[in-house]
Design a binder for these strands. Structure first.
Length: 554
RNA sequence: GCCCCCGUAGCUCAAUGGACAGAGCAGCUGCCUUCUAAGCAGUUGGUUGCGCGUUCGAAUCGCGCCGGGGGUACCA
């Protein structure tokens, strides 16, 4: 990868300068920063290394930069290494070298862009994990898109990634849900029955009650209410999970595991965890409940583990669940993707790790800000309880899965975003995803028309047009983008890269004709067919990383 | 009250502490007899909420205000 090579060459240059006495022998190098200058005229990469060293060396930054440049080793990769005011060192890649990279990309195929940052680290990304008490809404879809794309990116960055959905199939909310299912079922049979106060009032529960009544008749009236609620709750749970799974599949999200909260209590996991916490002195009984004393390790407040009615609360499950992740299943790194409404919980999760004797850095809580939902400018307050929803399914049907993913992906997780359903419908045809996909389809069309031409022997060194070079340059950024997105857990960078890449292709398409019937064009045609084939590969790769389709025609 | 996130073009948002702050959409002007016009070229639009600091350099870091969102349950 280019960045690593430049890093190595820079260090070599500094050492050479030191040996020649041009720089002090004792010099602590900072971490080398390499970036793409905003202005193309400044070159492909730049480093402020000399600016950082100037103070230590006691000389003007520009002088230091010139000294490093003077001792910079020769390499075929670079056409120019230049010191620039106030003290940057700018690197310009050689055109010949760039052109040859088309062959490198084609040889790498689908693995082009992959890096070995993760070194196979066993990593789990847990995302969405909303209560299975209703359909997925568009806000949860942001979680799905961030989590799924991040998992893709980490995979490409060399991590061994496992995707998981945590099902809250027990607890207060689940009980409310089961109670609602029972009441709506009874009502569907024409019996007057009041809704539980904390029930789920959405239309979809009425619908579910009707279905249950139609399928099972009055079967559940002939057993104790408690038993009927339990059984109906199970059926309703199963259906809701199935519908959530289908909703997620609509936008191309699949899991390796759907993990049941209940299962944590079906073996001795929970007991074991309680023993560890007790041994660590983190458990206290008070007010009839059992508490996790987070305050002992600097937490802002203690948390209930076992409620006064004897049932474990969500935090007890969370601890057992993470014990299962790290100790039982041996994940080295776990990322939980959470909405910002769970942020207060983050410090306690870190304390929990300490209490379990695990390194808190092995757990990353990735928070994304909530989506403000609007319908024609009016804010829609989301609630499954009251039933006011904009469902993911509804939006996908209106706008299409790729546009939904692109929209939700293109903002940084920490930025709040507005989603206006009416606006999304209106503008769906203008979604940038089509710009990217169109570039892919255009290439597919060229390759179809090229039909029988065997371009395998094409000479890529013929690719010297500025638009050709610019396009290849853009492709060479892919590994850097993957590294950026992976290290900063910021998959939104992919969307911007995809647009830049498509833009570079469209410019090439304008300037350089690929197919020609003239005999004298044969060589350049073959070279350009290689170029567009490589571009198609990279576009498809980026689209796949983002979980979107790469159409052959549009 | 305290804690967390955010405030950048008309709108939705990008921008590792780096060089002249960028896209998409919306607006305006042009370009289809040759590989897909879902495209291309040009153009309008900014005191990066306000103030003070930190340093070679601040949209980015610190402090104080102002504004928006979220949290502060024996819900999850």
């Amino acid at each position: 990868m280019i960045l690593r090579e430049l890093n190595r060459l820079l260090k070599e240059a500094v050492e050479t300068a030191q040996r020649a006495g041009a720089l002090p022998a004792e010099l602590e190098l900072p971490e080398i920063i390499l970036e793409r200058p905003k202005q193309a005229s400044l070159g492909d990469y730049a480093t402020p290394l000399a600016l950082q060293l100037a103070g230590k060396v006691g000389r003007r930054p520009l002088e230091v930069a010139e000294t490093i440049v003077a001792h910079f080793p020769a390499t075929p990769m670079l056409a120019r290494v230049q010191a620039a005011r106030p003290g940057f060192i700018n690197f310009t890649l050689s055109q010949e070298w760039i052109a040859r990279q088309v062959d490198t990309i084609l040889a790498a195929g689908e693995t082009f862009g992959n890096i070995d940052l993760g070194k196979g680290k066993k990593t789990q990304v847990e995302f969405v994990s909303v209560n299975p008490t209703g359909p997925l809404h568009i806000g949860s879809a942001r979680n799905a898109v961030i989590g799924d794309t991040l998992a893709n990116v980490l995979q490409a960055a060399g991590y061994n990634v496992y995707r998981e959905y945590y099902i809250n199939d027990r607890g207060t909310q689940f009980d409310n849900f089961a109670a609602t299912a029972y009441v709506r079922y009874v009502q569907a049979l024409g019996i007057d029955e009041p809704m539980p106060e904390a029930g789920y009032f959405g239309q979809y529960m009425i619908e579910l009650g009707r279905q249950l009544a139609a399928e099972y008749g009055d079967k559940f009236l002939h057993m104790p209410r408690e038993e009927a609620t339990r059984q109906l709750g199970e059926i309703a749970l199963e259906r809701t999970i199935a519908s959530i799974r289908q909703d997620l599949e609509l936008i191309g999200v699949y899991y390796d595991c759907w993990f049941s909260e209940r299962s944590l209590y079906q073996d001795d996991t929970f007991q074991k965890v309680m023993e560890i916490l007790r041994a660590a002195g983190m458990v206290e009984e008070r007010e009839g409940a059992v508490w996790f004393t987070a305050t002992k390790l600097g937490g802002d407040k203690d948390e209930v583990l076992i409620r006064s009615d004897g049932t474990p609360g969500y935090f007890a499950s969370d601890i057992a669940y993470h014990y299962n992740k790290f100790v039982v299943r041996g994940f080295e790194w776990v990322i939980d993707v959470w909405g910002a409404d769970h942020q207060g919980h983050v410090p306690r999760m870190k304390i929990m790790m300490q209490a379990l004797g695990l390194d808190p850095d092995r757990l990353t809580l990735l928070l994304y800000q909530l989506v403000t939902l609007k319908r024609g400018g009016e804010v829609v307050r989301l609630s499954k309880r009251t039933g006011d929803l904009i469902t993911l399914r509804e939006v996908v049907e209106e706008v299409g899965p790729d546009a939904v993913r692109f929209f939700l992906l293109s903002r940084a997780a920490e930025s709040q975003m507005d989603f206006d359903l009416e606006l999304a419908k209106e503008q769906s045809n203008e979604n940038p995803v089509y710009y990217v996909q169109y570039a892919h389809a255009r290439i597919a069309s060229i390759l179809r028309k090229a039909g029988g031409i065997d371009y395998r022997a094409g000479d890529t060194s013929l690719l010297q047009h500025p638009s050709e070079i610019a396009l290849i340059r853009e492709m060479l950024r892919l590994p850097e983008i993957i590294e950026l997105a992976a290290t900063r857990l910021a998959p939104h960078h992919l969307t911007y890269y995809a647009m830049d890449l498509a833009s570079a292709f469209h410019a090439f398409y304008r300037d350089c004709r690929v197919l020609s019937s003239l005999p004298e064009d044969e060589a350049i045609t073959k070279a350009r067919l290689k170029l567009v084939a490589a571009t198609k590969l990279v576009l498809a790769k980026v689209l796949r990383l983002m979980g979107m389709s790469a159409p052959e025609t549009m």
